[in-house]
C-alpha cells in the first residue's frame, strides 16, 4: 500500500530524516512515535507531497508521489499538525470546498459531506463559522477534511493534541473505525495513544527508525524494569536502615514528602528480580508499616525513553518529583 524507501531529508547541515524505510499494508494502523523534532511531521509532509525528499522514494499503491503527484495525492487524506481551516468559512462551506478541491463527484458530494459530518459528529455545527469552534471541534473538522473523498490512505499528524480526555477517547474510536476501510498512519508523542490504537509502532528519533514492532511485543522485547514504588510510615533513617539489609536492591530514590511521617521511595533492583517479599519482611521487622506498594512495569514510555536516550540514567531523571537520590550503601 505505502512503500517508503531510503527516505532522507536534509535542511542545510541538519538531517531531519535519515534513511527511513518502511511499508504499510492495507487496513493497517501505523503509529509514529518520537519526541518533538524527531522528524515525524517531516516524514508525513514528504509522504503527502507537501515537501520533497532529498533522497529516497515514496510510492502509494505503486504510484510515486514525486513522479505523479496529482495521481498519488488523490489517494491521500492528510490532517497536518495544525488543521488547515479557513476561519471565515462555515463548517459546511469548508467541507464543500474541500470536496471540490479533491474532485469529488458532484452527485456523490452532498451525501458524502453529510455522512462524514455524521461520522465525525459535527453535523450540529455545520452552520457555525470555523473561527467560533473549540479546539476539539476544529480538530474534528480537520479530520473530516482528511476523510473527504474516502482516500485509501489517511495520514494524521498528532490527531489528539489539544483535546480533552473524552474527546481523545472519541477520536481513538473514530480512528479505529477508519481503519476498517482505510490505511492509517498517525503520529504521536504520547505512548498510550499509540499502544491503544496502532497495529504497528515505529519509534523515530533524530530522523532515524529505532524500533518497529507491535505494541504488545515491545514490552516483552525490552524486558521489565525491576523495582517497587513504596509509601512507608516511619522515620527516614529507620526505613533506610531496614532496606539496607535487603539483598538485591541496586538503588533507592527518595521522593518529596506528601504527608509528614510517611517516606515515599522508589526501590530499584535488577530486572526480573522480585524483591517485594523481602522488602515487606524487612520493613515489618523494623516496625515501619508499608502503606502502599506498587510494582514498576516497563511501560511504552520507559521503552521509548530507553531507546531514545543513550543512558539508562536518564530514565529516572524523568521523574520530576525527585528530591534527592540516595545510592544504596554496601551491605
Amino acid at each position: 500500500m505505502v512503500e517508503v524507501k531510503n527516505l532522507s531529508k536534509r535542511y542545510g547541515d541538519h538531517l531531519a530524516v535519515d534513511n527511513l524505510s518502511f511499508t504499510v499494508n492495507k487496513g493497517q494502523i501505523l503509529g509514529f512515535l518520537g519526541p518533538n523534532g524527531a522528524g515525524k511531521s517531516t516524514t508525513m509532509n514528504i509522504i503527502t507531497g507537501y515537501i520533497s525528499a532529498t533522497e529516497g522514494t515514496v510510492t502509494i499503491n505503486g504510484v510515486d508521489i514525486f513522479d505523479e503527484p496529482e495521481e498519488a495525492k488523490k489517494m491521500i487524506g492528510y490532517l497536518p499538525e495544525f488543521p488547515p481551516l479557513y476561519p471565515d468559512m462555515t463548517v459546511k462551506e469548508y467541507l464543500n470546498f474541500v470536496a471540490d478541491l479533491k474532485k469529488v463527484d458532484k452527485k456523490a458530494k452532498k451525501k458524502m459531506i453529510s455522512d462524514i459530518m455524521e461520522n465525525t459528529k459535527i453535523t450540529h455545527m455545520s452552520d457555525r463559522l470555523i473561527k467560533h469552534l473549540s479546539k476539539g471541534y476544529k480538530q474534528r473538522v480537520g479530520l473530516a477534511q482528511a476523510i473527504m473523498g474516502y482516500p485509501d490512505l489517511i495520514i494524521l499528524d498528532e490527531p489528539t493534541v489539544g483535546l480533552d480526555t473524552k474527546q481523545i477517547i472519541e477520536m481513538r474510536e473514530l480512528i479505529k473505525d477508519l481503519s476498517k476501510n482505510h490505511t492509517v498512519i498517525l503520529s504521536s508523542h504520547i505512548m498510550q495513544e499509540v499502544s491503544a490504537v496502532c497495529d504497528t509502532v515505529m519509534i523515530i528519533d533524530k530522523g532515524k527508525l529505532i524500533l518497529s514492532d507491535k505494541p504488545e511485543n515491545l514490552s516483552a522485547r525490552m524486558g521489565v524494569t525491576g523495582g517497587v514504588r513504596l509509601s512507608v510510615k516511619g522515620d527516614k533513617k529507620e526505613v533506610f536502615a531496614a532496606l539496607n539489609n535487603v539483598k538485591g536492591i541496586t538503588k533507592i530514590v527518595r521522593h518529596a514528602y506528601v504527608n509528614p511521617g510517611v517516606v515515599e521511595l522508589t526501590v530499584y533492583c535488577n530486572e526480573n528480580d522480585d524483591i517485594r517479599e523481602d522488602v515487606f519482611y524487612a520493613l515489618s521487622k523494623a516496625n515501619t508499616p508499608i502503606l502502599e506498594m506498587k510494582v514498576l512495569r516497563m511501560s511504552l514510555e520507559d521503552i521509548f525513553l530507553k531507546v531514545t536516550s543513550s543512558s539508562k540514567a536518564d530514565m529516572t531523571a524523568e521523574e520530576n518529583d525527585i528530591e534527592e537520590s540516595v545510592e544504596k550503601e554496601e551491605v
Binding site: 503527502t48 495525492k73 492528510y78 481551516l85 477534511q145
Partner: peptide
C-alpha cells in the same frame, strides 16, 4: 500563515 497551504499543496491540484 493559516497553514492552509498544506491543504492546497497536498490536494490533487497543480
Amino acid at each position: 500563515k493559516q497553514k492552509t497551504d498544506q491543504l492546497l499543496y497536498t490536494a490533487p491540484v497543480t
